[in-house]
Design a protein around this nucleic acid. Sequence first.
DNA 1: TTTTTTTTGAAACAAATGTTTCAGAATTGA
DNA 2: TCAATTCTGAAACATTTGTTTCAAAAAAAA
Lengths: 198, 198
Amino acid sequence: MYLCSVMGRNVEFDEAAAIQKAMEVFWKKGYNGASLRDLTDAMQINSSSLYNTIGDKQELFVRCVQHYTDLRRQDWDKRLNSNKSPFETLVEYIHEAVGVIINGEDSCMAVKSAFEVATNDQRVKDILIADNDRAYQFLHDLIRNAIKMGEIKTDEDPALLADYFNSTWTGWYESYILHKDPIKIKRMADYFIKQLTK
Amino acid sequence: MYLCSVMGRNVEFDEAAAIQKAMEVFWKKGYNGASLRDLTDAMQINSSSLYNTIGDKQELFVRCVQHYTDLRRQDWDKRLNSNKSPFETLVEYIHEAVGVIINGEDSCMAVKSAFEVATNDQRVKDILIADNDRAYQFLHDLIRNAIKMGEIKTDEDPALLADYFNSTWTGWYESYILHKDPIKIKRMADYFIKQLTK
DNA sequence: TTTTTTTTGAAACAAATGTTTCAGAATTGA
DNA sequence: TCAATTCTGAAACATTTGTTTCAAAAAAAA
C-alpha cells in the first residue's frame, strides 16, 4: 500500500489518528453531511496530504467504515476469548450494548451508513456485510454454546435467534434517537434475554 | 397558510403532486444527498415557485416527511376499521409489511430520516416521534384486543410487545439492504408471530 | 377594459463543495 | 555535503450548492 521507497520526506501526520478523527466526523454528520473542510479540520492535515496519502472523500469514508468495523471485531474477539461462560458473556454484552445506545450520543455508524450509502457504494456495502456477518457469528457462537452447556433451554434454531437479535438491535438505536427513553431500551433487552431462557 | 386573497394569478402547479415527487427524491437520496436541482427537476417547477409557495429546502423536507407519515396513518386507520379480527389484521399487516421491505427498493423514509436528520432538525424529529407513536398505538390496540378476544394467549405486557415489534421492524430494513435475503426476513416475521401465539 | 396583484421562467447570486496545483520545506541516501 | 525525492501549506480550481432577483406573463377584481 505505501512503500517508503528510496528517498524523500516522510509522512508527517499519524495516519491512524487522522482516520480516527475523520471517522468521528463521518459518524456524527454522515457521508453527505460531512464536508472535506470538516474532515481536514478534524484530521488536522491539509487536503493535499489527504489526497496524496489516502485518496478522495469516498476512499476516506471506506477507510473510516473499515476502521469502525475493525474496532467492533476486536471487541467481539476479546469477549469470545474471555473465561466467562457463553450465556454470561452474552448477557454482559447485551447489557453493555444497551449502555452504548443510552450513553453514546451518535448512534451506530454502521447502521447509519447502511441506510445512507450502502445502496450506492458497493465497497461500503461489502464492509458492512462482513461486519454484520461477524456480529451474527458472535451471537450464534454464544447462543449455540450456551445451549450445549445447558445454560439456555430453547427449541428454537440458534441461527434464527442470532439473526433476530442482530437485527432487533438496530431498532433500539432508532427508538432511542426518537424517544431518548433508557427504560424502554432496557425493558426490550430484558425481554430478549428472557426469551432465551424459557 | 395560503390565502388566495383578492387578486392575481393562481398557482399553476399541483402542490400535492409536487410534494409527492419531492418526497420520492428525498426518500431515495436522503436529505443531504438530494440537491435542489434534483428536487425541482422532479417536481417540474422553478425554484422561484418553490420558494414562493413552500419555502426552503428544510421546509420542503418537513412537508415531505409529513406527507410520508400521513400516508402511513391512513393505512393504519384503514386497517383498524376493517371488519377482520384483531389478530387477523395484525398477521396480515406483518405479512404485507414484509412484502414492502422485500419488494420496495428504497427502504423506509421514516427510518432513514431518523438516522440522518432527526438529531439535527427538531421539526422532523417531532413528526417522526408522532409517527412512531401512532405505529405503537396501532400495534398496541391490535395486540390488546386480540388478547381480550382470546385470539392470543400471553402473559407478556401488550405495551412491551408493541414496543418490541415497533423497533424490531427497523432492523429488518437494514438486514434486507445488506443481505437482500427475503427468506431471512420472512423467518423473522414468522418467529415474531409465533411468539405472540404461544 | 384597465388596474392590481400574483406567479412564473431564466438568469444571476454568493458561498460552499470536492479536488488540484505548485513552490518551498523536509528528509533521505550518496 | 549535496542531489534526489517526497511531503506540506496555501491558494486556486471549476462545479455545484441553496437561494434570490426581476421582468414578463397571467389572472382576478374594478
